[in-house]
């Protein structure tokens, strides 16, 4: 075969490949008309900034039913409550057995009248004899947990919100009982929000890019 013929055949071959490429490119570049998939965002419950529990003051403010704090619905003012213990020395709770007593590891920490005033059941009483209302519970906690109270007063313990710069706005801070149940003081466990890329929308992200372990 003549060189020129070979050249022409090669060129024709190249031309055909180009034409083929053009067709392939054009087909592949068809614009996807499907609507974009919905964007999955985290449940807005995880963005809630309200405290993990409502204390007495918050319940009063919110107009909640506070019969649980009305001690004299059941107790009598004339008959002071005596603590009763079983043979093993455990506190007999009777009507209060729905309360979990986990205020520290030792049994002595969990006696009712460490904090409640024996003579006025709807009042609190510090170890120094000061009587406080339920709204003033933070002072009661601080009467034992002095260093924590000191941190809290500095906004170094507990949750704050609003303004770091007090010249520009107000700061919110929470009372002890808005995070800690006074009878079971450990911070409650919570459901964790979704982990990294667990919400990845699996439609738009092609599988080869979705290689997280």
């Amino acid at each position: 075969m003549k060189e020129e013929t070979k050249t022409a055949i090669v060129l024709a071959g190249v031309a055909i490949s180009f034409a083929g490429l053009a067709v392939v490119f054009f087909t592949l570049s068809a614009i996807d008309e499907r609507p974009a998939p919905r964007i999955v965002m985290v449940d807005s419950g995880f963005l809630d900034t309200s405290p993990v529990r409502m204390n007495y003051a918050a319940m009063v403010e919110a107009g909640e039913d506070i019969f649980d704090y009305d001690c004299y619905l059941c107790h009598s003012r004339r008959e002071p409550v005596e603590l009763q213990f079983d043979e093993l020395g455990g506190l007999i709770l009777e009507e209060h057995d729905y309360i979990t007593f986990e205020h520290g590891p030792s049994r002595e920490n969990n006696y009712c009248f460490n904090c409640h005033d024996r003579d006025q059941l709807d009042r609190l009483r510090t170890q120094y004899g000061t009587t406080l209302t339920f709204e003033e519970s933070t002072q009661l906690c601080g009467s034992c947990h002095g260093t924590t109270l000191r941190d809290w007063k500095q906004d170094a313990h507990g949750r704050t919100g609003g303004y770091w710069n007090l010249a520009m706005g107000e700061r919110t801070r929470l009372d002890c009982t808005e995070c800690h149940d006074p009878h079971d003081t450990r911070f409650p466990t919570l459901e964790p929000a979704p982990g990294p890329h667990s919400m990845k929308n699996r439609i738009i992200v092609s599988p080869e890019n979705n290689r997280d372990p």
Partner: peptide, 12 residues
């Protein structure tokens, strides 16, 4: 022709 074939493949 070899040159064109080579260049053609590279261009593709």
């Amino acid at each position: 022709w070899r040159y064109y074939a080579w260049m053609g493949v590279l261009t593709v």
